[in-house]
Design a protein around this nucleic acid. Structure first.
Lengths: 207, 207
DNA sequence: ACCTGAACACCGTTCAAGT
DNA sequence: ACCTGAACACCGTTCAAGT
């Protein structure tokens, strides 16, 4: 009589996410996850083919929490895009250690496809079509991916900014002045401000 | 009588870059670099404290080739920003394997600081100041970082786009239609188009 | 001082064996 | 069928020894 499986893929992903949240992505290993679920290392290979598949389950778990329903259609379209962008940013912000995994596996996440479907719908409402709409979606993705990374790998308020403020003003006049203003901009304002630039530019005429 | 050093840090970085270009970032190891320079693994530790420092030398080597001189001031400012952005994009594009390293070590590169100094100067010419200029620089960085990554970790013309085109049109009407247009946009047009959106939005009025 | 090789504590993964 | 433990081919890095 076959013994029943004692683990679900979701439990496995959850254990891996726990390891990442606790010890960072560098702490993620098959051995560490096995210990977390109380099994031998090799038992994991009953549930996943390899580490790559384990990582895929982790990002499915994380991105699965992203709401992909369209915001209320009477909301102005730039606000609707901002709502969609913040849903991703908030989820990822809760698990900064998975950022590199999301970058690497993002094109295999159906949840992100569904998110994109909703976003393209909003861009269509904004009057975009054809090539402009393709470029609109792609530059939104690029901005969100890049901004999330800058935020978690060298935030505006972190030691990097202090190092910039300490630059010799004779050699870096603009950067040392900019660093002073940077302290007055928090992460939310920075993300929202950059996104607003992008959205304005997507529907304005060429100068 | 002390033996002279047989290696310069530049040679070490160049050997590591050769390994990355040849076998990808996954192929980079202290042992592989040692073999490339014809020394024992442990000899490398005469030149760097650890692997992290070796990686720093690699990105210094790569980014050191980025021209940070301001473009001709009679060029319209959006074109000047585009020139600056393309200088980074071109250099990185020649060594796609180092993209994750640049992301991780970018805040320790003085060359990138100098690049930023020039960019902030151009933004100032465009009439930006204070918080707007901080946000302008940061969203440019976010866009460039994100766009370079999307380009090298799932290009518009790659298998990912085909998978999107194959989505069921009933469930993903917008995405399957978008995939058709996506094939007509090459990587250069995509990068330039997204950047143009951002630059237009940075100096246009709120709607 | 420069360089080497053995050794240690880690990886992911294969394979044969136990229930 | 589910799970285990030894083993293999890798890592980065410490340490003692050779010239």
């Amino acid at each position: 009589m076959p013994r029943p499986r004692s683990l679900t893929p979701a439990q496995l992903a959850s254990a891996a996410l726990h390891v990442i949240d606790h010890d960072g992505l560098a702490g993620l290993s098959m051995r560490a996850v096995a210990q977390q679920v109380g099994m031998s290392t090799m038992a994991l290979y009953r549930y996943v083919d390899d580490r790559d598949e384990l990582e895929q389950h982790v990002i499915d778990l994380v991105l699965g929490a992203v709401d992909t329903n369209p915001p209320a259609p009477d909301t102005p379209w730039p606000e609707r895009i901002e709502i969609m962008a913040n849903r991703v940013r908030d989820i990822v912000g809760a698990h900064p250690g998975v950022v590199p995994l999301i970058i690497a596996h993002r094109h295999r996440s159906t949840r992100l496809l569904r998110w994109s479907e909703t976003v393209v719908g909003i861009l269509t409402d904004a009057g975009l079509n054809g090539r402009d709409r393709v470029i609109g979606l792609r530059c939104l993705l690029a901005y969100i991916v890049g901004a999330i990374q800058l935020e978690h790998l060298g935030p505006l308020a972190g030691p990097g900014t202090q190092a910039i403020a300490d630059l010799p003003p004779t050699e870096f006049p603009y950067m040392s002045e900019t660093a002073g203003h940077a302290r007055t901009v928090n992460a939310d304002e920075e993300f929202r401000g950059g996104l607003a630039n992008l959205l304005r530019g997507m529907t304005s005429e060429l100068p």
